[in-house]
Amino acid sequence: MPRRFPAILFAVVAALPAFAADKVTFATNWRAEAEHGGFYQAVADGTYARHGLDVKIVQGGPQVNTQILLAAGRVDFAMGANTIEMLEAVQQNVPIVAVASMFQIDPVIFMSHPGEGFDRFEDLPKATAFIAGAVRASVWQWLKKAYGFRDEKIKPYGFNSAPFIADKKSIQEGLLTSEPYAVEKQGGFKPNVFLLHDYGYDSYSTTIQTRADTVEKKPDLVQRFVDASIIGWYHYMYGDNAAANAAIKRGNPDITDGQIAFSIEKMKERGIVDSGDSLTLGVGAMTDARMKSFFDKMVKAGVSPADLDYGKGYTLRFINRKVGLELRPQ
């Protein structure tokens, strides 16, 4: 005969409070775009929720400094642009730590006009170069040391490609996933694209950063956010990403379906998210060897001091665990 439980027991169980997800705020470094897709995916498909997280994504932009927001405790996690940012934070004693890198390849590029004498990378130092201040302080210093680029060729880049389109003897900085598409639409030609990673610039990109005290006091929260973000990126790159793209367009009405499709195509084509160490360690992977390689380049270029304790700026504690590897198409 089945056991019977008093009705009052069921009433007590029903009255128990539901599990409350941890509220988390994550700041991106630009307006919503496909390059942030894995994070929007993890919200849209419930991956964060399944990891006990209620995540709010706060968009960045040209006037938003996500590292300041993070250091001040106004957000819990923030998207870092590249390894340079991490080195600068250590140098300035800002207590934030990179805990994962969603992009194995920094998509920073130079573009040139085809058939104008700048079809090879070794030709580029001769061209007028439209670059922004952040690139001049970092990437450009490495290019000068490694490839002979010269300061007198610089013209300021104000995130408008019109001057580059008009000057056929120029080059312009950009991201593999963005500016080539805009130039082709605006200028009516397909630019030569040089991914700096192919020439030795081995920065990580699209990192997840948090405060050092969060790593120390809330490691479980960090682990869950990192794991869920990794799974979100697998789903975005290899699964149904329609809901995430709809969320991106709601957040950034100026972005087009064409731009989103182009960005995803280029991320897949060049392994921006999933290549190298991520093939065996999982998306989000970082290694000490890669960090040292990049740091040594920045020291040689005069960007970072040789005695910088750059290891304070990152941790491998939450990654390289093969999380989500089974989601990668075989």
Rank of each mutant, 00 (worst) to 15 (best):
Lys185Met: 08
Lys185Asp: 00
Gln186Met: 12
Gln186Ala: 15
Gln186Lys: 13
Gln186Phe: 11
Gly187Gln: 09
Gly187Asp: 08
Gly187Phe: 08
Gly188Glu: 07
Gly188Leu: 09
Phe189Cys: 04
Phe189Asn: 05
Phe189Tyr: 15
Phe189Gln: 06
Phe189His: 04
Lys190Pro: 00
Lys190Ser: 05
Lys190His: 03
Lys190Gly: 04
Pro191Val: 09
Pro191Glu: 11
Pro191Phe: 14
Pro191Asp: 10
Asn192Gly: 12
Asn192Phe: 09
Val193Ala: 09
Phe194Asp: 13
Phe194Trp: 13
Phe194Thr: 15
Leu195Lys: 14
Leu195Cys: 10
Leu195Val: 10
Leu195Arg: 06
Leu196Phe: 14
Leu196Met: 12
Leu196Ala: 01
Leu196Cys: 05
Leu196Ser: 05
Leu196Glu: 00
Leu196Ile: 12
His197Pro: 07
His197Phe: 08
His197Gln: 11
His197Leu: 12
Asp198His: 14
Asp198Pro: 13
Asp198Tyr: 12
Asp198Arg: 15
Tyr199Arg: 04
Tyr199Lys: 07
Tyr199Asn: 03
Tyr199Trp: 08
Gly200Asn: 07
Gly200Ser: 06
Gly200His: 06
Tyr201Gly: 04
Asp202Tyr: 14
Asp202Arg: 15
Ser203Ile: 03
Ser203Asp: 01
Ser203Cys: 01
Ser203Ala: 03
Tyr204Met: 07
Tyr204Ala: 02
Ser205Lys: 04
Thr206Pro: 03
Thr206Val: 02
Thr206Arg: 05
Thr206Ile: 04
Thr206Ala: 06
Ile208His: 00
Ile208Asn: 01
Gln209Val: 11
Thr210His: 06
Thr210Asp: 07
Arg211Ser: 03
Arg211Cys: 02
Asp213Asn: 11
Asp213Ile: 02
Asp213Leu: 02
Thr214Glu: 01
Thr214Pro: 04
Val215Ser: 00
Glu216Asp: 12
Glu216Phe: 01
Glu216Pro: 00
Glu216Ser: 13
Glu216Val: 02
Lys217Phe: 02
Lys217Met: 04
Lys218Trp: 05
Lys218Thr: 09
Lys218Gly: 01
Lys218Glu: 15
Pro219Lys: 03
Pro219Asn: 07
Asp220Trp: 08
Asp220Thr: 15
Asp220Tyr: 06
Asp220Pro: 05
Leu221Ala: 01
Leu221Met: 13
Leu221Asn: 00
Leu221Lys: 07
Val222Arg: 06
Val222Gly: 05
Val222Cys: 05
Gln223Arg: 10
Arg224Lys: 08
Arg224Glu: 00
Arg224Ser: 03
Phe225Trp: 11
Phe225Asn: 06
Val226Met: 05
Val226Ala: 01
Val226Asn: 00
Asp227Arg: 01
Asp227Thr: 10
Ala228Thr: 03
Ala228Ser: 14
Ser229Tyr: 11
Ile230Val: 10
Ile230Asp: 00
Ile230Pro: 02
Ile230Leu: 01
Ile230Gln: 01
Ile230Trp: 03
Ile230Lys: 05
Ile230Phe: 04
Ile231Ala: 06
Ile231Val: 15
Gly232Phe: 08
Gly232Arg: 10
Gly232Ser: 11
Gly232Ala: 10
Trp233Val: 08
Trp233Phe: 12
Tyr234Ile: 14
Tyr234His: 14
Tyr234Cys: 12
Tyr234Arg: 13
Tyr234Phe: 13
His235Gly: 11
His235Ala: 15
